[in-house]
Amino acid sequence: MSFGGPQWPQEPQQQGQQGQQGYGQQPGYGYPPQQGQGQEQGQQPGYGYPQPHQPQPNPFPGAQGSTDTPDWGALADASASRGRRKRLLLVGGGVLATVAVGAIVATAVVSTNKKNDEAKNPVPTGTVSPTGTPTPEPTFSSVAPPPPPNPKDYISDPKKDKAPLSAEGLFPGKKMSMNGRAYKKGATSATTNCAAVTQGGLGSVLKRNGCERVLRATYVKDGVAITVGVAVFPSEAAAQKAKDQASGGIAPLTGAGVGDFCHATVCLRRSNAIGRYAYFTQAGFANGKKVTKADKPVFQASDDLGTFAFNQIYARGRAQASAAAADSGE
């Protein structure tokens, strides 16, 4: 019987027009006043045009042959007026210059801020930069790393399966627990004489398929005794053949508080294989009672010990695969 599988600033307003109101229109300068206007307002006679009923002044004061005295006050007023005109023009030009400088400064400030923003907010990877040049994408290697070693490879090939193997190493401790069910361990053994620890036709099957050794251990729980035997073969194919051809069973292992069982009675025998290992169980009552299909504790014990054997063999492969990965620096 076989086991199951376990945003810009505004420009400043131009002020050049202010102060130019009435330019060239001062009373008495450049234009004749109305009759009586100067007398009514107490203003001096105008310059540049003759006043009524008065002698006309020489148009070129200070010239030779002239008997008139130049109007020095009028000349001074004219000079002052021309000076004011020049100053107003200069002031107006200054305002315009100020506006131009202000615009340049504002432009420089905005340009600087824009550069700062770009520095703080770089172009995202994979987009087009302000110069129109695509930014490079990160590159990764297209070569996948090698897969980790497969534990099954180490328990299938004798060239890789080099770890020490013993009954105590395969069946450690004084007890075994499976899903809360505790089993006490009895005796253990190991032999290279595979046929010697079998019953029925199992010996010949092991021998025919090149069995190298058998490791056994017995466990007990609530009056049920189970012996589990693990047979080692030179290949996975050989172990699989031995499992398929199995007849008879592994011989019960007594001792360490466990008496004779499955002798001259009906017991439950099962077989399975993983890698180059085949494993067998024989379970029955410690008192010699024969096993029936209704005896669930016996079937449960057989399942638990078969699962335990599978786990131990696979753990052996996993440990060797991990060690190989560490040695290769993977």
Rank of each mutant, 00 (worst) to 15 (best):
298 V>E: 15
110 V>C: 02
151 P>W: 02
187 A>F: 05
224 V>Y: 01
203 G>D: 12
24 G>T: 12
298 V>W: 04
137 E>L: 14
36 G>Y: 10
197 V>T: 14
82 R>W: 02
6 P>A: 14
273 A>N: 09
221 K>A: 07
163 A>M: 10
33 P>Y: 08
258 V>I: 15
96 L>N: 10
149 P>M: 06
154 Y>R: 10
211 C>G: 11
118 E>G: 04
146 P>Y: 07
157 D>H: 04
162 K>T: 14
129 S>I: 00
206 L>W: 00
164 P>G: 05
119 A>D: 00
226 I>R: 01
248 G>W: 07
161 D>T: 04
212 E>D: 13
224 V>P: 00
101 V>A: 08
69 T>N: 14
173 G>P: 02
279 Y>V: 01
2 S>Q: 14
272 N>H: 13
119 A>I: 00
227 T>F: 01
48 G>R: 09
190 A>C: 08
111 S>T: 13
229 G>Y: 06
26 Q>S: 11
138 P>W: 11
192 T>E: 09
116 N>F: 00
302 S>P: 03
312 Q>H: 12
164 P>I: 07
177 S>D: 07
41 Q>V: 01
235 S>L: 05
103 A>K: 14
144 A>L: 15
11 E>A: 12
266 V>I: 07
292 T>I: 08
107 T>Y: 06
183 Y>P: 00
244 D>H: 01
23 Y>I: 12
53 H>A: 11
53 H>P: 01
10 Q>N: 15
179 N>L: 09
300 Q>R: 10
266 V>E: 07
104 I>T: 13
68 D>I: 11
202 L>P: 00
16 G>M: 05
316 R>L: 05
20 Q>V: 06
254 T>Q: 07
91 V>Y: 05
49 Y>R: 15
70 P>F: 11
4 G>A: 14
47 Y>R: 13
274 I>Q: 03
274 I>K: 01
253 L>E: 02
318 R>V: 03
330 E>M: 14
281 T>E: 03
225 A>R: 03
282 Q>V: 08
304 D>Q: 12
217 A>H: 04
269 R>L: 13
265 T>W: 02
246 A>V: 03
199 Q>C: 05
129 S>T: 00
187 A>Q: 13
296 K>V: 12
107 T>H: 08
63 A>F: 03
57 P>E: 15
98 T>F: 10
23 Y>A: 10
235 S>H: 05
325 A>Y: 12
100 A>W: 03
218 T>H: 03
47 Y>T: 08
329 G>I: 12
37 Q>R: 09
153 D>C: 03
192 T>D: 11
42 G>I: 07
127 T>R: 08
122 P>K: 10
281 T>P: 00
105 V>Q: 14
201 G>Y: 02
19 G>W: 07
52 P>K: 14
199 Q>K: 05
319 A>K: 15
128 V>M: 07
329 G>E: 09
302 S>M: 04
22 G>L: 09
76 A>I: 08
72 W>V: 12
322 S>V: 09
183 Y>V: 09
46 G>R: 07
291 V>S: 01
57 P>R: 11
100 A>P: 00
215 L>Y: 02
95 V>S: 06
224 V>G: 00
27 P>D: 15
330 E>N: 12
183 Y>I: 07
234 P>D: 15
73 G>A: 08
276 R>N: 12
10 Q>F: 11
216 R>D: 13
107 T>S: 11
275 G>T: 01
205 V>F: 02
226 I>M: 09
150 N>F: 01
129 S>Q: 02
172 P>N: 08
176 M>I: 06
325 A>S: 15
